[in-house]
Every structure is written in structure tokens, then in C-alpha cells.
């Protein structure tokens, strides 16, 4: 598989090593990976396989020790910290296992925070946040705080927050890990629907059954890509 310039995400020989000298621990060994626009990718692997570290690097939250990360064809290697932050704010959306919503703020305000760091003014933030909440089926819950919402609803608020700025890449870390099976299924169905609308999504999970519903599954083991399968066909 060769990296393409039109791809949303390109990893080229990405290595991540923690510590130095004899204590050095290499968690990722030369990962090459390309995600095209509109792809829906599951990254699976047991804990310690390096998938969280991979997600940190894909999400521009961390830098590789060596190798290149390209998002939308732009090499991030020389990006300053501030520029990386702005890139996250503008082009990436994150969904976390524990939602990470602000407790005392309404769904509308939490989702609006997804636009805050791009300098979008409040009235515009509220309008777009309301749109995003309607899109995830929470149009009737705009003024509820996380405490007044179920876990599944909270995760949908978090998805709305990750979508509100129309990112090029939606990243999810164990998005159903804290939910009962019905709520988890609802969130995954939401991802399916977003994918059908053309969103590019990468979901990291240790749960093979969740990954099984995705058109493309990347299996990690010991810091390497063990397999990269596009439904039924080797990529």
C-alpha cells in the first residue's frame, strides 16, 4: 500500500520510544498506515499492543520519535505546538471512553466548546452546537447537563462535540467501553450513519466484535500492524 497525497491520514515509518538508554521502551515499531477520505477503520489489539499510543499520534496529541505523520497531506513534523493545537481544533474530532464532558455545563455548551478554540463567537457556537446535537438525535436535550443524561446520551453529546466543527477525521477511543450494550449499539449505529454520510472515522477498541462491523480493521500486536483487512479482502 503506497501513501497517497489525497489521503486524510498518512503514517510513514512511525516509531515511538519512551525513555532513553537502557530504560528505553519502544511502543511503536515503524508503522505505515494510510486512511482515505470516507473510510471507517477499526484499530484493535490487546492492551499493550500500542493502539493508544498510535491514537495519540494519529490525533496529533503526541509526536513520533521518528517517522512522519501527514494529515490532509501536510507533514506535521515541523509543526509548532501551537500549530498542532490549531490543527486538532480545526481538523480532528475526539470521542473518549469516559465522554469527558464538563459536569455543570449543558449539552449545548459542551458541544459549543468544540468550536471555542477556533475563535467562533458564542451565538454561532450555540447555533452550530444545536445543529450537531440534533444530528445525533439529542435535539430535545440541549439544556440538560451530563448528570441529567444517560451514559449513551452523554456519549452522543461527546460525538456531537467531536463533529460540530466538521473535522476531516473523527477519532474514537473505546467509545462504547463505558456503556451498556444497548447504548453502545446506538453509538455505533450513529457512527455507521456518519460514515454513510461520508465522515472519515477511526475507532480504537480492544473489542473484536465491535471492530467486526467496520469495513476495515487494523490489528495491532506488540507495536506493529499485525493485519490490515478491508472487509474480506487484504488491503
Amino acid at each position: 500500500m503506497s501513501p497517497q497525497s489525497g489521503s486524510v491520514l498518512d503514517l510513514r515509518g512511525v516509531t515511538r520510544t519512551y525513555g532513553t538508554g537502557s530504560a528505553a521502551l519502544t511502543v511503536l515499531h515503524g508503522i505505515d498506515l494510510t486512511v482515505q477520505e470516507g473510510e471507517y477503520v477499526g484499530v484493535v489489539g490487546p492492551s499493550g499492543s500500542g493502539k493508544s499510543t498510535l491514537l495519540n499520534i494519529i490525533g496529533a496529541l503526541d509526536r513520533p520519535t521518528s517517522g512522519q505523520v501527514l494529515i490532509g497531506g501536510e507533514d506535521l513534523t515541523s509543526y509548532s505546538d501551537a500549530r498542532l493545537s490549531r490543527l486538532r481544533g480545526a481538523h480532528l474530532g475526539f470521542v473518549f471512553q469516559q465522554f469527558f464532558l464538563l459536569e455543570r455545563r449543558t449539552a449545548l455548551e459542551n458541544v459549543g466548546d468544540g468550536l471555542l478554540y477556533q475563535g467562533v463567537r458564542r451565538p454561532e457556537r450555540r447555533r452550530r452546537a444545536a445543529d450537531a446535537l440534533r444530528r445525533v438525535g439529542l435535539g430535545a436535550r440541549l439544556d440538560h447537563t451530563p448528570a441529567e443524561l444517560s451514559g449513551g446520551e452523554c456519549q452522543r453529546v461527546a460525538v456531537a462535540r467531536a463533529l460540530v466543527h466538521r473535522p476531516r477525521l473523527l477519532l474514537a477511543d473505546e467509545p462504547t467501553g463505558n456503556l451498556d450494550s444497548a447504548s453502545g449499539r446506538a453509538v455505533l449505529e450513529l457512527f455507521d450513519a456518519l460514515h454513510a454520510e461520508g465522515a472519515t472515522i477511526v475507532v480504537v477498541t480492544h473489542d473484536e466484535s465491535i471492530a467486526a462491523r467496520m469495513p476495515r480493521v487494523i490489528a495491532m500486536r506488540d507495536g506493529r500492524v499485525e493485519s490490515d483487512l478491508v472487509r474480506g479482502v487484504a488491503a
Binding site: G59, L61, A82, S85, R88, F94, F100, Y117
Partner: peptide, 16 residues
Amino acid sequence: RREIGVRRALGATRAG
């Protein structure tokens, strides 16, 4: 720390 991390993920710079 967690809130800070999430805000950084949402695009907050160090200065922010």
C-alpha cells in the same frame, strides 16, 4: 489535568 487534556484535544494551545 483531564479537562486540560480534553481542551488541548479540542484545539486549545498552551497559551490558551
